[in-house]
Amino acid sequence: MTAPIRFTLNGAPAEFNGPAGTPLIDMLREHFGLRGVRLACARGVCGSCTVLIDGAPGAACSLFAYRVDGRDVRTVEGLADADPPSPVVAAFADHAAFQCGYCTGGMIMLATALLAHDPDPSRETVVAWMSSNICRCTGYGMIIEAVLDAAARLREARDAA
């Protein structure tokens, strides 16, 4: 028997009773059915499996399930299923910041982490962060516009509050 892994998943308490050495991506996809966490390179390079753990972006393919014990985990479902959807999701949709869409979940999570870290990023900062995830359709132009627009929307919402 292994001790259960208890954590918060997209805002709700979650428990995993499988082996602690399960890859995080398998736990999220197979056990919790979160298919927005996408496996591609399986070695932390491409970022399509990016999730936020206590707000920090991480590649779910390169982390073991035990690393989320006691932590807060967010996947793209937590943002996309919100009502209204997060401004980052809305900006990606409005800018059509995807082509095949495979990398989009990871891009949205990385952008969310960036805007939490730096609410008013320069284009240069956006490029530096977002270039750590790979878009194989090379649709980076729209992605960068979407992130800058999401920053503006978040700023407006903050100013209005």
């Binding site: 292994t2 082996p19 050495g21 399960t22 991506i25 496996l39 399986a42 073991f64």
Partner: peptide, 10 residues
């Protein structure tokens, strides 16, 4: 990949 590999004890 790590998928399908028997999980190790931790």
């Amino acid at each position: 990949s790590a998928r399908g590999v028997p999980p190790a004890s931790v």
